[in-house]
Amino acid sequence: MTTAVDFVNLALNGLVEGLLIALPALALTLVMGIARFPNAATGDYMTVSAYAALGVQKALGVAIAVAAIGAAAAGIAVALFFHLWVFRALARRRPVASLVASIGIAFLVRALLTLFVGQEQQTFQVALVRAWNFGGVRLLPTDLYAALGAIVAMAALFALLHATPIGRQMRAVADNPDLARASGIRAGRVMLVMWACTGALCAVGGVLMGVKAVVMPELGWELLIPAFAAMILGGIGSVPGAVAGGVLLGMVQELSIPFVGPSYKIAVTFGVMLAVLLLRPRGLFGSAPAAR
């Protein structure tokens, strides 16, 4: 029998998973809002970052928080590299060209990673502590840290978008690129900053996911579909939407386990996404119309 305490625990699990999904969803939604295509390589940027953090931790023996700086550097570098090489050149073409190219990048990055690091799993060295138990409601310290990490990253992004000049420019480009250009905003710089943010978000997401699970070359690729779904659910281009979408999907997924089991829970998230889109084609927070 599933008791109330069980449901609280499931909701907590869902919340943590949702927050972790929200990070790549944010990275997706930023690219979607400003560069206007779904970036299928998002997950693989996460994987690269996670391996970079592992490398730093192994080489220097530092704490994960410090290693995350190395991850961020790697994430930003990869994101900027492919922007400058591929996406910038495709900016004037139909979005699907960039989408297809990003699938190519995803394949390339994952294959190169596998080539150099191998397919065996690797793990971060984390001290394991017992969960805090509040009358049967269990809170894992590592989950708490992961959630906090995700929230800090989101807050930083929010602050950047709303409290800095470049952030305001980014939002202006997202709202109306033509108007933004007309008012003298340099789109090239906005793009660079946006891709750097994307890389950094992927890095945080990759490291947190690596700490929670295990690091393998498929780490980020497996998260792509849920991240896409979270972005769509929240409304493309919406920052709070991506977070809300991630959390909602995570919680629906875990809370559906007692009813449909752990396999169909993935299909359930798809059903929820469809239902929301049918009722509200622009997603929960979307401003740009998703419908034709």
Binding site: D6, L10, N13, G14, E17, L20, E222, I257, G261, P262
Partner: peptide, 15 residues
């Protein structure tokens, strides 16, 4: 319980 491959967490299944 039968669980899905490649998930980031199995807490709910374990629970």
């Amino acid at each position: 319980v039968v669980y899905e491959p490649s998930r980031p967490s199995y807490r709910s299944e374990l629970q």
